[in-house]
């Protein structure tokens, strides 16, 4: 028989767990804290070598980033691109996810793999040909072009996530609706969609964040209509360090807000039900 654990051993285990968790949290949060502090630090404090934590704070670099460097335009572009990306990826991804969750067909698993495989190619390789194609199509340096590229990046995730969310809604609900007078499409909109909505909303925001954060493609595909990350890369990188932190802070906000709101749904998003 296994030896029973004494209260002392359990206590030690608990303490060790807390220490490990604490280390992980510090590991992830330190950069965030540093970015936040530095984003608001006054330039003189920031450059004072013996001051680890600045004491004077200012909003001046926000002001100049927003207005002199025209970040507000970039933010607007970013939002437009992210919204279009979100919509496009759902219009295409939701039916695909539904098909994967509800139907059994030959080659289904292979198809799933193929969807993931689209993420296999490094963006660096795809970027230049993509730019040329977009230039020929006349959508380079536009919101549409960037959105299309972002949709291609987000789509595999949206398909797989929405298929797992829809799988969480029992087929019986849909079939019951079909028995009681709805067609399959009506049943989807009246029954399945409302039930899957929390999870789908979370994945929609997920798509938004991916597009919001994406910098490489956005930089290559645009010159004037730059999204925020691309814009910051261009302007802030040529500016003093504290501007970089300010840029980083603005970039991080939506993701943080998102995580706070959808923490609960993130779990169901990956196909694990909390029930």
């Amino acid at each position: 028989m296994k030896r029973q654990k004494t209260p002392m051993v359990l206590k030690i285990k608990q303490v060790i767990t807390i220490i490990i968790v604490g280390l992980i949290v510090i590991w992830f949060l330190t950069p965030l804290v540093l970015i936040t502090i530095s984003a608001f630090a006054s330039p003189s404090d920031y450059y004072q070598i013996d001051k680890v934590i600045p004491t004077h704070f200012t909003l001046s670099q926000f002001k100049s980033l927003f207005f002199e460097l025209e970040a507000w335009k970039a933010i607007l572009t970013s939002i437009k691109v992210a919204v279009v990306t979100m919509l496009l990826s759902f219009v295409i991804g939701l039916p695909a996810g539904y098909a994967l969750s509800r139907y059994i067909f030959p080659g289904k698993n292979f198809l799933k793999l193929l969807i993931l495989a689209t993420r296999m190619f490094p963006l660096m390789i795809l970027a230049i040909p993509l730019l040329i194609i977009f230039m020929r199509m006349g959508v380079s340096d536009s919101i549409w072009g960037t959105s299309l590229a972002h949709t291609a990046m987000v789509l595999p995730m949206i398909i797989l996530i929405s298929s797992s969310i829809l799988s969480g809604v029992s087929v019986d609900y849909e079939e019951a609706a079909m028995i009681f007078g709805l067609s399959r499409i009506q049943a989807f909109f009246k029954i399945t969609l409302p039930l899957a909505l929390p999870g789908l909303a979370a994945s929609a925001i997920f798509a938004f964040i991916i597009s919001w954060n994406e910098v490489f493609v956005a930089t290559i595909l645009t010159l004037t209509n730059r999204t925020l990350p691309a814009h910051i890369l261009k302007t802030a990188m040529a500016s003093p360090d504290y501007f970089k932190f300010t840029g980083g802070f603005i970039m991080a906000i939506p993701a943080m807000v998102f995580i706070f709101f959808v923490r609960r749904h993130l779990v169901t998003m990956w196909g694990i039900s909390l029930k």
Binding site: D172, E175, M178, I179, L182
Partner: peptide, 17 residues
Amino acid sequence: SPKDRNISMVFQNYAIW
């Protein structure tokens, strides 16, 4: 299609929405 058959059904796991 089921909706046009004028039937109703009780499911094993209820399937009430």
